[in-house]
Design a protein around this nucleic acid. Structure first.
Length: 573
RNA sequence: GGUCCCGUAGCACAAUGGAUAGUGCAGCAGCCUUCUAAGCUGUUGAUGCAGGUUCGAUUCCUGCCGGGGCUACCA
């Protein structure tokens, strides 16, 4: 079934055509804040008033009269300066829950962008270094964006640009060969490798000559030295194993892990192409640059004066590779705001080089700030992502023990895991990505109010009702005799259900998971209000049957939405 | 200096150019012999300043004030 919103838009379009006003008219439907203003509303008469040369309310009246009547709309009214408000019929709202249940886990998915491909890049950890709390935003945001894109029909290629190359590896190789121990590293790979890396930097202070030895090791690696290559592959393998363990906890996956090394042999072609087209020229001190014909930002540095390539060189190769491999409609890089200018630069270079017709998007997000204490990555005192996840689960476990002491230990652990990780992810995703995020434990692991546990709790309550209904059995009501919803509290829930697929498409177009979060919270609030004010199991059979369907449909939508965030929903908690 | 982002209640955040600017925490007043009180009901409290565009501006434009990022050989 097509979206309710689109169906109303279609009715309006027909009405506009009959009034010969359809030229260039954009039909815009919104959800009125107040229920008294209907389920859907349009400002069409207001925007068209000037062009049509008629007062808004008069135009609205003409549109209203030209609307073809349909049985699922109860009435249409003109309000305020000229809004046209649509009220869905009670029977439509009542029956919609059954439609949701019919679609089940699929409810919300659509084929809006079927046939289109998008490639995304997120997380990008550095090999031989642990995932830190600063990887949280890109990783979680990327995970949600990937799922949302797939949900509206895109074919999604999930890439993760691994930091797996560069002089740093020469230093690491030198450190490992000099002070390392295979058994020690194997036992606890990343922390031990990090220690070696830090030790290298400490030793450099005493003996600057080893800096060059590190460079030499990397040079050997670049030239294909067998021993170094084998060591490097070993380190990359160990790192990936740990990264994927964390990704699994977070519920995110990747199709590609094309890191810096992957593009090593693809940069020469880019440089050649740029030089041949006269786009790359020699800059200061012999570096190769791509100048711009404006001064909004400095020229893009392609190759250093010492001949070494840069991130930009690889990124251009990356764009070319993505284009040649997947021919996507969109390429999305999920990287923080600090890289905004950089991405503007390479997007402009890519455009000059005509590397791809795809839309290049830098989905940037705000910085994570730490008011509690300074969390610097400089001196190795970084906050590890794993530690944050552990803390999240631990805090949740304390609460589960307090709230649900009757559950078996294993069950409590499982619920604590879902709640703790969910709370963390929700805290990131519920906020507009462009806003700087302030990291405080209490906020990131909020377990009440607008938080993941609130949504999970709503689902658990719904399941509790459904379980009890199942146990009680009760009268079987034939489908055609199920009553309509009556109470305001339940109608408020019902009128939110048709919006889910519409919200999802909008949120995906905007690349803003928080719009989905806003919706889910609104739905859960409406449900909890309904739960507190309207009794399901004690209602007379025909109404009870209807309410049970509403409860199940609501739980389904909440579960579907949370699943996009990679948040699991326990049936009891 | 240039450029980008941000200024909404005590705090943290919402709001596709719409109707009375929403919510959470904190505060205040209530609600558990009734489907899970991680909840519900009520309540106090806000758009940095000055202009402009618009029927209508938190949103768009200009200026100012305040905060932050970036600003060619790092990734």
């Amino acid at each position: 079934m097509t979206f309710v919103k689109d169906q109303i838009a279609a009715l309006l379009k027909t009405a506009l055509e009959s009034l010969e006003l359809s030229d260039g008219a954009e039909i815009h439907l919104e959800y009125p804040l107040e229920a008294v203003h209907g389920d859907y509303s349009t400002n069409l008469a207001l925007t068209l008033s000037k062009k049509a040369g008629r007062p808004p309310r008069e135009l609205a009246q003409a549109l209203l009269e030209a609307l073809e009547p349909v049985d699922w709309i109860d009435r249409v009214e003109i309000a305020g300066p000229g809004f046209i408000n649509f009220y869905l019929s009670r029977s439509f709202l009542s029956n919609f829950s059954s439609h949701v249940l019919g679609e089940g886990e699929q409810y919300g998915s659509s084929s809006a962008y079927k046939g289109q491909t998008v490639v995304t890049d997120s997380s990008h950890p550095n090999v031989a270094k642990p995932l830190g709390v600063h990887h949280l935003l890109s990783t979680i945001l990327g995970g949600a964006i990937n799922k949302m894109l797939a949900q509206v029909g895109y074919t999604v290629i999930r890439d993760n640009y691994l930091g797996d190359w560069g002089t740093q590896f020469g230093k690491l190789l030198y450190a490992y060969k000099t002070w390392g121990d295979e058994a020690v590293v194997k036992a606890d790979p990343i922390p031990e490798l990090l220690k070696l890396y830090i030790r290298f930097h400490d030793e450099v202070e005493a003996d600057p000559s080893i800096e060059d030895k590190g460079r030499a090791e990397f040079k050997k690696l670049e030239q294909g030295d067998a021993e170094n290559k084998e060591l490097w592959e070993w380190v990359v393998g160990l790192s990936l194993k740990e990264f994927f363990a964390t990704y699994e906890r977070l519920g995110v996956t990747f199709d590609q892990m094309n890191g810096e090394s992957f593009y090593e042999d693809k940069m020469a072609a880019i440089i050649k192409m740029g030089v041949e087209r006269g786009l790359f020229v020699e800059g200061e001190k012999g570096a190769l640059i791509c100048p711009f014909d404006h001064d909004r930002y400095p020229p893009c540095l392609i190759r250093k004066s010492d001949g070494a390539t840069l991130y930009a060189t690889r990124d251009l190769a990356r764009i070319k590779y993505w284009e040649e491999t997947w021919h996507p409609q969109k390429m999305i890089n999920i990287v923080d705001t600090a890289q905004q200018m950089y991405f503007q630069q390479i997007f402009e270079v890519a455009k000059k080089m005509e590397l791809t017709p795809a839309e290049n998007i830098h989905l940037w997000f705000g910085r994570m700030r730490f008011p509690e204490k300074k969390m610097s990555t400089r001196k190795g005192n970084i906050v590890l992502l794993e530690e944050v996840l552990d803390e999240a689960e631990e805090r949740a476990f304390i609460l589960v023990e307090e709230k649900s002491p009757h559950l078996p230990e294993a069950k409590k652990r499982e619920i604590a895991r879902m709640i703790g990780i969910g709370a963390l992810k929700y805290a990131v995703l519920a906020q507009n990505p462009t806003t700087d995020i302030t990291f405080t434990w209490d906020k990131m692991l909020s377990l009440e109010g607008n938080s993941s546990p609130y949504l999970q709790y709503s689902v658990a309550r719904a399941h509790s009702i459904l379980r009890k209904a199942e146990e009680e059995g009760g009268e079987v009501v034939p489908a055609d005799q199920i009553a309509e919803l009556t109470e305001n509290a339940e109608l408020t829930v019902a009128r939110l259900l048709p919006r889910y697929p519409e919200v999802l498409v909008h949120a995906t177009n905007e690349l803003r998971p928080n719009l989905v979060a806003n919706y889910l919270f609104e739905l859960a609030s409406a449900f909890n209000s309904f739960y507190g004010n309207v009794h399901v199991l004690k209602a007379e059979p025909k109404l009870r049957a209807r309410r049970l369907i509403l409860v199940e449909a609501t739980a389904q939508v909440l579960k579907n939405g949370l699943k996009l965030f990679g948040i699991e929903t326990p049936e009891e908690m």
